[in-house]
Design a protein around this nucleic acid. Structure first.
Length: 875
RNA sequence: GCGGGGGUAGCAAAGCCUGGUCAAAUGCGCAGGACUUAAGAUCCUGUCCCUUAGUGGGUUCGAGGGUUCAAAUCCCUUCCCCCGCACCA
């Protein structure tokens, strides 16, 4: 076989699909829709890697399967084409990022097409296209109108490498998500935010109903981080300070306060005497790496201020502390050293009073560490004696009465910081007028395009572009200046799945009716790294757009699937730096697409990591070659019962396994089916059913076989076979297996006795198979239980349980439970089977074949055997 | 610390929910054989240990207990690995 056979097939069929527009799709209300989507890629200059290929193939197999099942399948692809790498490359080469991006996309598309995917390319989108980002700006304005987009000064994460601020989600362990070596610093800047917290509750609640991997849901829930408790107001120097606590029951144990050393208002609390000490602490924190913060010993400095306890009116000292987060809750905590380990350590260190207010039943003698459990209150004025749960309610009510607090819910989730001080992103549609201040750009002026000419370098190039910068105020027509911040590219990816439903609409972001037809995405695949970024933003967007009247669905992605990582043959994750990369494009150029597709889905369940194996992929290649070779010489005829049974079983398995995303098992079922049909006669219809099973995995090969055997149209659109349970005949398959064993035994035996041309083969079938006995036993124990299993039980012990007589019979005839046949055959069935088989054996061995029942002389020998393992005598 | 997922034969990977047909699919590797002048390719057979033509026996599914007539599968304890989040008040 020519080495590049599969490459040729790929080229041939990809061209035909293209020409016939096979995968273009329209909104056909008569058909049930199915929306399959893979996360759209950043079009990197280095092109497609194996992870992309794997991702797209997983989606494509599903899409093809659904297509063949008659669904109207939307399977689009686009490019997340704004972003830093292109901009940085542009700076380096002193060119416009657009050039890089478009070149990379061109290359990417070519490589994607080689994979034989069912994309409708007419719906392709690129987020750097003004026709796309216009709608980013449009939605931004809609959010702005509704108060979901706002500007505020806040401590933000700054990546010196990216030269821009980052969203909270883009900071991992204090490092930039793009630059794992670069520490993020905190800056106080005025920035644009999207109010994701508005939907925190819904994002959390609806997570439960999604058909998503547990861990992704868990990660999101954890990220949203809801906790219930109370908000309590402490007066400090006459100013009210709110703090959040989950344990209002310990309020009487609060003996000091701790404000975050990074709190923006910290200095307002510090007295002159304490200034030096506090500043020392703050400085120390600035010089500590983010990632070491957690390991740091609890440290603090007294601010000189005192807070008034809301209930006892006691004066308690306020410290600045390194262990309090500035951006959770209010950045200040009430410290209850007896019942919180951190507070405890702090109190010990700074010798602050520790007061026990909750006890676990009996009094605690000496506190060696904080008692963090719940219990009965002590030292708590009128709440003493109450159980924690009751006390929480009571104390919160008391606070509420005095207007000093109340029940509260706190989230870890923060508003999404969307402004970026970079060029290559969607300009934020706001202008600043000297007179009128901040003004939204009127919709009809959209899109605000990025300048085609720009000198990129240090900082944001938009600030140097007069053409971009200078505008008239939309309100007073006076002199105004554009916002130069651009949007986080996650803004683009938050709604791209919606654009696909109507990708070429120039009047609207998407048509509502189309969205109603296609949404939600039924099957979405991509990497797990997006759990707390893209997948939260996209969910937020869907909800926000729903409430703005654009959509009717609550959730964008019904089913989410995370593919595993691809490891090189050395066992490490495939990466350029390791040098263990196999480039999918190069592979396909050499060996073709189908072997790659087949291999990637056959190693393991697609949600698990998989290791590349040269010999493994060679195995896939060989298998497909055999299928192709076999197609040239199929013995068309009548499908035997056994093959029919096997086929229908396989259809059942493959369908189910694709549905369950167990492509590896589907592939095994296909291989087994092929083993079975290879040497056998088969009807054309049944053969083509086999080819159809192959089609989602190896579409080019399948098309070729489909064409070769004269079927019309494309197999890609042929009807997926449906199994018929009635045709699945396990007994028949069992008989065939038995016969095959017999045949092999004969071959072995002939070899052993060194007879090449036997004159007679005698098969002696034992009469000892007392099917009558089985019948009788069934009467004894009843039909309810599976008699085979009961036998096995009896064999081991417990004879009396099932009746002595029955047990004895069993013991007599079945020495071992394993001798129960898989399928119950009647004596007649068995005999009939041997008779029919006689002929075949006779042909094969070219001699007389005798099947006879054992008599007393050879019963002992034959009786030892199972049906299918009878005594054999050769002459 | 919290949360999620794992540990199965030389390797990879099914099986576990719903216990018995499990010495345990499948692929790779390995061994033997057929074909060939030979190598490769291809095909067949075997691949936990002992034994048989078929068969029988022994010991296995991280470790240790338990439930059951019966455990890779259910329950408990324990060890190890991966992956998220992590001073969240």
């Amino acid at each position: 076989m020519v080495k590049n056979t599969f490459k040729k097939l790929a080229d041939k069929w990809q061209a035909k699909w293209d020409k016939e527009k096979v995968f273009e799709v329209t909104e056909d209300k008569k058909k049930k829709k199915f929306y399959v989507l893979e996360m759209y890629p950043y079009p990197s200059a280095s092109g497609l890697h194996m992870g992309h290929a794997f991702n797209y193939i997983i989606g494509d197999v599903y899409a093809r399967h659904k297509l063949m099942q008659g669904f109207n399948v939307l399977h689009p692809m686009g490019f997340d084409s704004f972003g830093l790498p292109a901009e940085n490359a542009a700076i380096k080469e002193k060119r416009h990022p657009k050039e890089f991006t478009e070149k990379a996309i061109k290359n990417f598309v070519e490589q994607q097409k080689q994979l034989g995917l069912t994309y409708d390319w007419t719906r392709n989108l690129k987020s750097h296209d003004p026709a796309y980002y216009k709608w980013n700006q449009y939605f931004f304005l809609k959010f702005y109108e509704k108060g979901l987009a706002y500007k505020k000064k806040a401590p933000v994460n700054w990546c010196p490498e990216c030269d821009t601020v980052l969203a909270n989600e883009q900071v991992h362990n204090g490092m930039c998500w793009r630059h794992k070596e670069t520490e993020v610093t905190v800056k106080h800047l005025e920035q644009w935010f999207i109010k994701t917290t508005e939907y925190a509750e819904e994002l959390l609640k609806k997570a439960d109903i999604l058909d998503w991997p547990e861990r992704i849901k868990a990660m999101q829930k954890n990220w949203i981080g809801r906790s219930e408790g109370a908000e309590i107001i402490f007066g400090i120097n006459g100013t009210p300070w709110k703090v959040f606590t989950t344990r209002p029951d310990t309020l009487y144990g609060a003996t000091f306060m701790v404000v975050s050393a990074q709190h923006p208002e910290l200095l307002s609390l510090v007295t002159d005497e304490q200034r030096a000490e506090v500043e020392k602490l703050v400085k120390k924190i600035h010089t500590t790496k983010q990632e070491d913060m957690g390991l740091l010993e609890k440290e603090g400095a007294f601010t000189g201020s005192y807070a008034e306890h809301p209930l006892t009116k006691e004066k308690i000292p306020v410290y600045a502390g390194n262990f309090v987060l500035a951006d959770y809750g209010s950045g200040m905590v009430m410290a209850v050293p007896a019942h919180d380990q951190r507070d405890f350590e702090f109190a010990k260190k700074y010798k602050v009073h520790i007061r026990t207010v909750v006890q676990p039943g009996k009094p605690i003698k000496e506190l060696k560490e904080a008692y963090t459990g719940e219990g009965i209150l002590v030292n708590s004025d009128k709440f003493t004696g109450l159980e924690s749960g009751e006390a929480k309610k009571g104390i919160v009510n008391e606070l509420k009465k005095k207007k000093l607090g109340g029940k509260a819910v706190s989230y870890k989730l923060k508003d999404w910081l969307v402004s970026r001080q970079r060029f290559w992103g969607t300009p934020i549609p706001i202008v600043y007028c000297e007179k009128c201040g901040e003004q939204p750009v009127p919709e009809k002026e959209l899109p605000i395009k990025l300048p085609d000419k720009a000198v990129l370098g240090k900082g944001n190039a938009l600030q140097n572009s007069k053409e971009f910068l200078e505008v008239k105020c939309p309100k007073c027509k006076g002199k105004a200046r554009r916002e130069t911040d651009t949007m986080d590219t996650f803004f683009d990816s938050s709604w791209y799945y919606l654009r696909f439903v109507d990708a070429n609409n120039s009047k609207e972001a998407f048509d509502k009716v189309n969205a109603k037809y296609w949404m939600p995405v039924d099957f979405y695949t991509g990497g797990a790294e997006h759990a707390c970024m893209h997948l939260i933003y996209a969910r937020f967007f869907t909800k926000a757009l729903r409430d703005l009247g654009f959509l009717e669905v609550d959730e964008p992605f019904t089913k989410l699937f995370n593919q595993g990582m691809i490891h090189g043959k050395d066992g490490y994750v495939m990466s350029k730096s390791r040098g263990n990369v196999v480039n999918p494009t190069e592979f396909m150029e050499g060996k073709g697409t189908d072997p790659l597709r087949f291999f990637l889905v056959s190693v393991a369940s697609p949600d698990k990591d998989l290791m590349w194996s040269d010999t493994g992929v060679e195995g896939s290649y060989k298998f497909l070659s055999r299928v192709l070779k076999h197609s040239e010489n199929v013995k068309f005829g009548k499908t035997s019962k056994r093959i029919g049974s096997k086929l229908h079983q396989s259809i059942k398995k493959v369908t189910h396994n694709i549905e369950q995303l167990k492509y590896n098992l589907a592939v095994i079922a296909i291989r087994e089916l092929f083993e079975a049909i290879q040497e056998e006669e088969i009807s054309k219809e049944d053969y083509l059913a086999f080819v159809k099973l192959l089609a989602p995995f190896t579409p080019h090969l399948a098309e070729e076989l489909w064409e070769k055997h004269g079927s019309k149209g494309f197999i890609s659109k042929a009807k997926w076979p449906v199994h018929d349970d009635k045709k699945i005949d396990l007994k028949q398959e069992y008989l065939e297996e038995v016969n095959e064993n017999l045949r092999r035994d004969i071959i072995d035996l002939l070899r052993l006795v060194k007879i090449k041309k036997p004159s007679e083969i005698k098969i002696i079938v034992s009469k000892k198979w007392k099917y009558g006995f089985v019948k009788k036993y069934k009467e004894l124990i009843g039909e309810k239980r599976d008699y085979k299993h009961v036998f096995q039980g009896i064999m081991n012990s417990d004879l009396k349980k099932h009746g002595e007589e029955a047990a004895k019979m069993v013991a007599l005839f079945f020495k071992d439970a394993s001798r129960i046949p898989k399928q119950e055959l009647s004596a007649e069935e068995e005999k009939e089977n041997y008779d029919s088989y006689k002929e075949m054996l006779g042909k094969e061995f070219n001699c007389r074949v005798v099947v006879e029942e054992a008599d007393s002389s050879n019963e002992a020998k034959a009786g030892n055997a199972l049906p299918g393992k009878p005594a054999i005598i050769v002459k």
